[in-house]
Simulated assay, not measured.
Amino acid sequence: MLRVHFTAEDLFNVTFAAEPLPLVELASALAAWQRTDEQAVFGRWRLRVSRELPGRARPLLDLLRPDGDNPEFVEPYARTLEEGLAAVREAGPLLTAAQLGRAAARAPGPASWLRALWDRDREAWDALDGALRSAHETVIAPQWPRIRQSFRADVAWRTRLLATHGIKACLAGTHPRAGWSGTVFEVDLPPDYEVRLGGRGLMLMPSPFWTGRPLLAGRPDGSHVLVYPAMTPLPLVGPGPAEGALDALLGRTRAAVLQSLVERRTTSEVARDLAISLPSVSEHTRTLRAAGLITTERDGRAVLHSVTGLGADLLRSGG
Rank of each mutant, 00 (worst) to 15 (best):
H5Y: 04
H5L: 05
F6T: 13
F6N: 12
N13S: 11
V14G: 11
L21F: 01
L23I: 04
L26D: 02
S28P: 00
T36D: 13
F42E: 03
R44N: 02
R46Q: 08
L47T: 07
P54C: 12
R56L: 15
P66G: 13
P66S: 13
D69S: 09
P71V: 10
F73H: 11
F73S: 08
V74C: 10
V74S: 04
V74M: 02
Y77W: 05
R79D: 02
T80D: 06
E82T: 14
E90K: 14
Q99A: 10
Q99V: 09
R102Q: 12
P110W: 02
A111C: 10
S112D: 07
W113E: 02
R115T: 10
D119V: 09
D121A: 10
L128A: 11
D129A: 05
R133F: 05
R133D: 11
E137S: 12
T138A: 13
I140P: 01
P142R: 04
P142S: 06
A153T: 10
V155C: 03
A156E: 11
A163I: 07
H165P: 00
C170P: 05
L171R: 01
T174K: 00
G182I: 13
G182W: 02
D188T: 15
P190G: 12
Y193L: 10
E194V: 13
G199L: 05
R213V: 11
P214L: 06
L215D: 01
H224T: 03
V225L: 11
V225Y: 04
T232A: 14
T232V: 13
L236W: 08
V237C: 02
E243D: 14
L246D: 07
R254W: 00
R254K: 12
A256Y: 01
L258E: 09
S260L: 15
S260G: 08
E263F: 14
R265M: 15
T267N: 06
S268W: 06
E269K: 07
R272V: 15
V281G: 14
V281I: 14
H284P: 06
T285H: 02
R286D: 07
R286T: 15
T287G: 10
G292I: 12
G292Y: 03
G292A: 09
H305F: 05
V307M: 05
V307L: 07
T308P: 13
D313N: 08
L314Y: 00
G318I: 11
G318Q: 10
